[in-house]
């Protein structure tokens, strides 16, 4: 018997979609993920085209201090008589930038540490994970306040402070993933072929965690945006820029609450909440899709259906 496989057996390959497409499909199947993606996309678009939407400047005085919302100014005016909607849109830019940039910083740092620790193992792993443990124990917000105070307020500092203090969960997640990938048969095969560490790491392991990295980035955005708001509210934001946190801080300081000017404080708060919500929804769904083993199985109390029809009906 010759060992030839007939053409017939190849003619009908199982049509399994490729990974990115499968990822997209599984995100699309989750309503929460669609909602999260919609929220995030709306804010990103707002940040990009925002300045075209309102005719006013961010320093332009257009009316009375804390003027009520009106047709011309749907969100009213702030403590300097500047249009709140204009400020809110300008703040979207800075807040999102800080959120995404800090998240990227943290994922780069955390991802590198996690992959290195997981792949190298041994004392490298031990040392890096000890470092990670210390970082987890350190209370983040007080440390951020200290560092931000020492470095002085600026957007770049804000990004670095947040990014460099938030990488721990990413590092642990990635390490665990790489540890299991390293034991995979395909990686063992690569080693047996004679592949070097570099090739194994960057061709066989890292590409497998891209999905997880993406998910973690999105998920971290929510935390970064929240910290940005918190730091700004504590007066550590860049005074030269407008962000949601700065808007809340200024409104708070300039007696918006006692003046009853809710429109100066509620909209930026809602924006922060929405972005946090959106990125958690999308990030969690991406994480489930990228790492199905970590997902909780959805146990359904429903049971199978019974049909009357016979099998050969079709």
């Amino acid at each position: 018997m010759s060992a030839t496989t007939t053409l017939a057996s190849v003619a009908a390959p199982t049509s399994q979609p490729t990974r990115p497409r499968r990822l997209l499909a599984s995100v699309r199947r989750r309503p929460a993920a669609v909602a999260g993606a919609t929220i995030l996309a709306t804010f990103v678009i707002l940040a990009l085209v925002g300045p075209l939407l309102t005719p006013y400047g961010v320093h332009q005085r257009v009316g009375e201090v804390y003027a009520h919302p009106s047709a011309a100014h749907p969100l009213g005016l702030d403590d300097a008589g500047v249009d709140m909607l204009t400020l809110l849109i300008a703040g979207t830019r800075v807040s999102l930038f800080v959120g995404f940039a800090a998240s990227v910083v943290s994922v780069i740092v955390g991802g590198s540490i996690g992959v290195l620790a997981g792949y190298a193992g041994g004392w490298v792993d031990g040392a890096l994970m000890r470092l990670t443990d210390y970082m987890i124990v350190v209370p983040a917000l007080p440390l951020m306040i200290v560092v931000a105070t020492v470095w002085g307020p600026s957007v770049v500092h804000m990004v670095l402070v947040i990014g460099l203090l938030m990488w721990t969960s990413t590092a642990r997640l990635l390490r665990a993933q790489v540890l299991s990938l390293r034991e995979r048969a395909s990686v063992r095969r690569a080693r047996a072929i004679g592949c070097g560490h570099w090739r194994i790491a960057f061709r066989h392991i890292v590409p497998e965690v891209y999905g997880l990295l993406g998910a973690t980035t999105v998920l971290t955005v929510s935390v970064a945006i929240f910290y940005e708001a918190a730091l700004s509210f504590l007066g550590l934001g860049d005074p030269g820029t407008v962000s949601w946190g700065r808007l809340i801080e200024m409104a708070f300081e300039r007696t918006a609450i006692s003046s009853g000017a809710w429109w100066a404080i509620v909209p930026p708060g809602v924006c922060v909440a929405l972005v946090v919500l959106g990125s958690s929804l999308l990030g969690n769904a991406l994480q489930d899709a990228a790492n199905p083993r970590a997902a909780i199985a959805h146990v359904s109390p429903r049971t199978f259906r019974v049909r009357a029809e016979r099998g050969d009906r079709r």
Binding site: R19, R184, A185, S186, R188, R189, A190, H204
Partner: peptide
């Protein structure tokens, strides 16, 4: 290797 499903990088 034993497992041709796992050992080939998909």
């Amino acid at each position: 290797f034993q497992d041709p499903y796992e050992s080939l990088d998909r």
